[in-house]
Amino acid sequence: ADKLLLKTPIAFGTHLPALGTPIAWVADQLKLVSDGKVKMKVYEPGKLVSPPEILDAVSSGKVNSGYSTAGYWQGKMPAAALFSAVPFGPEAGEYMAWLYYGNGMSLYQEMYDTAGYNVKVMPCAIISPETSGWFSKPIEKPEDLKGLNMRFFGLGASVMEKLGVGTVQLPGGEIFGALEKGAIDATEFSQPAIDQRLGLHKIVKYNYFPGWHQQATVFELLINKDTWGKMSKGQQALVETTCKASMTNAIAEGEAMQFEVMEKAAENGVEIRYWNQTMLDTFKSKWDEVVAEKTAADPFFNKVWTDLSTFRKGYDLWEANAFLPRAQK
């Protein structure tokens, strides 16, 4: 067909910087570069279908595309978590290297194919690290975590549980109330610029970094395979290239907007802290335990993990020599 309309429900509102703004940008660009022949109609979260249902909706053809993050599907495919954000995992540059020039992309597609989902997948945005969480007291040693109740999402939650943290995964809207009233003692959510919107800095003052659980997060565009098959080579390239451009746009936007928010938070009395080495080592060793369990439980998780690890081991040589050490503060 000459014209194409991608009806695209999304997982994050377009008003959310870096989480939602990239797909609005993609929609604008698609229309521009195709002279109006390829259009994307974006549906805010929940308007047509809520975020966790996007994969099902696209695969069954109820909509022809969707924008989300694979982490949402880890209940359906455990390996999906590895295509979204990996604790102690690669930063954006390394992540993209593995996806585009390692085996990442073919494994990514293979995951959906073997699980029987009728979708074509492509990364369509990537963002920089998240914060490690908001606490009401300083955390200096692993024992300080014991007995805390914390909102934590994804693979990182398993790590926290191993440290004696009671975890819950409250929806974004309940976090503020639960934290304010003390039903939970700590929470992680997203990047500073997003967390600020929840108003977390108004109740708890210790904001920890680095976000070891999410150094880079990839967002995906899913397109129904029948739709994809009917698209011309040009249309396919158009969408793929625009998504690749969106990776650049998203990481640039995310990198640009955090420090101002952090400065303002610090002015408002928030203590910005960096995990001490003991804590980081503890998180890492617990994460290794989690990985051991996951790789044993799911063969495909194991396959992706092994491939990613091999790639990263090779990259280490380059990484250790090529980059300047980071000054802290």
Binding site: S60, Q74, G75, A115, G116, A157, S158
Partner: peptide
């Protein structure tokens, strides 16, 4: 029916690692 069949086919689990199975 399709909705349930899909969930059955992949033996869907909660998206939280320590959540409930048999979705």
């Amino acid at each position: 029916l399709d909705f349930v069949a899909d969930s059955w086919r992949i033996n869907e689990h909660s998206s939280a690692p320590s959540g409930l199975g048999w979705r």
